[in-house]
């Protein structure tokens, strides 16, 4: 993605973002905080004004675009890539999961799937680095680290399919 920044003396700053297909999104940020959003259909075209936003409004819209308000992915499966192939994943424990009531040692997660449980989120609390005696409850969110294959095995174990 190509972003060009230029100064507008006495006005503020201009950012031009290539959004593909020859189109450019132009954001003019005024010194007053007002943002103006323009769309250029092609490099030669005149900019068409889309909206003008106050500073507060712009930040609001910005967080929505960023995904902080709403992540368009399944909430019980959020993954973060730590390095090539190694994932940090979140899994919600359903009421009917066979692991409910088991301790980490009893479920033998490490041996059976290869992932490491790094935290258990329970309501407002987070049990970081849980011991092998920690018990899994329905409604927990389990955070694990492991290879993609291992994570998939853990997901199956959690659902009772392994």
């Amino acid at each position: 993605m190509d972003v060009t920044e230029s100064d507008l003396p006495g006005v503020g700053k201009k950012h031009e973002v290539d959004i593909g297909g020859g189109q450019q999104l132009v954001v003019v940020t005024h010194n007053t905080g007002t943002r103006e959003l323009y769309l250029k259909e092609s490099a030669d075209a005149d900019s068409e004004k889309l909206v003008e936003l106050s500073d507060r409004m712009a930040r609001m819209v910005g967080t929505i675009l960023e995904g902080a308000y709403f992540q368009p992915v399944e909430s019980n499966h959020v993954e973060t890539m730590l390095s090539e192939g190694t994932l940090l994943e979140w899994y919600a424990v359903e009421d009917d999961s066979p692991l409910v009531g088991e301790t980490l040692a009893g479920a033998d997660i490490g041996q059976r799937t290869g992932v490491t449980v790094v935290a258990i989120q329970r309501g407002e609390d987070v049990i970081a680095a849980p011991t092998s005696a920690a018990e899994i409850e329905a409604g927990d969110t389990i955070v694990v680290i492991g290879e993609r294959d291992n994570c998939e095995r853990f997901e199956k174990l959690l659902a009772g399919d392994l």
């Binding site: 006005v11 201009k14 003019v28 323009y38 005149d46 900019s47 068409e48 004004k49």
Partner: peptide
């Protein structure tokens, strides 16, 4: 700013 030229190259 009024004419929207501010977002164009002529600015």
């Amino acid at each position: 700013i009024d004419l929207g030229w501010i977002a164009n190259d002529e600015a």
